[in-house]
């Protein structure tokens, strides 16, 4: 009985911790059927970003190009300003293909993190996931919570503009990564900042051309 009480108490503490991170938002409905609109899902367009990746004090700068090849197929290529290709990724449905990577950039852990970050931005295959809808106290935001295995992504949509302004990724009740989308022009963010909280990695994307 004592053990049961202790387990219940620990369970209660843990569940209130899990609420601690996003407790300021109240749940509207579970099994919500509408999903956040994909940022890049825009008629097979390509997008060009001036990009800076800062990882543990090292700076990598260049141009990032994204191209939607088919509804669930995206190509993402990173080159230096001088034209040298650094990596070439393809995201098709749930599959990932590394088409090319310059040896100097071929660090498996770094590539994996960048791949996962881009996957979050591409928002491929969201509709196969279970989503819950939350709102803030002021009623300014709609917040979609979607589970990806042990990771939860929270998509913050500004109600007035319907713009996705932030994605937060959490794992084991800890905030892992924040994606901030700002300076919207014609319903597309002019600036995207990806800030990791558990490793020293920051990616800045500034739109040059749509």
């Amino acid at each position: 009985m004592k053990n049961l009480l202790l387990s219940s108490f620990i369970g209660l503490v843990l569940s209130s911790c899990s609420f601690g991170l996003y407790g300021r938002y109240s749940e509207v409905t579970q099994a919500y059927s509408t999903y956040p609109k994909a940022i890049f899902g825009d008629n097979f367009n390509s997008f060009l970003f001036k990009t800076n990746i800062t990882v543990y004090g090292k700076d990598y700068s260049g141009l990032l190009v994204t191209k939607q090849m088919s509804p669930q197929d995206y190509r993402v290529i990173f080159t230096t300003e001088l034209g040298m290709k650094l990596f070439d990724f393809e995201f098709k449905d749930t599959a990932f293909t590394l088409h090319y990577c310059v040896p100097q950039f071929n660090k498996p852990k770094l590539l994996k993190v960048i791949q996962k970050d881009i996957e979050v931005l591409l928002m491929n295959n969201l509709s196969s996931k279970k989503t819950e809808l939350y709102r803030d106290k002021e009623g300014l935001l709609s917040i979609h919570k979607i589970e990806f295995g042990p990771t939860q992504n929270y998509y913050f949509i500004e109600k007035s503009s319907q713009h996705l302004i932030k994605i937060e990724q959490a794992k084991k009740r800890r905030k892992k990564t924040t994606f901030t989308l700002s300076n919207y022009q014609a319903d597309f963010p002019g600036n995207i900042l990806i800030q990791h909280h558990d490793i020293k990695l920051k990616i800045e994307l500034n739109l040059l051309k749509k």
Partner: peptide, 10 residues
Amino acid sequence: MYKFNSNTIV
């Protein structure tokens, strides 16, 4: 700080 950039292509 180390900045990665190259014009060498192939």
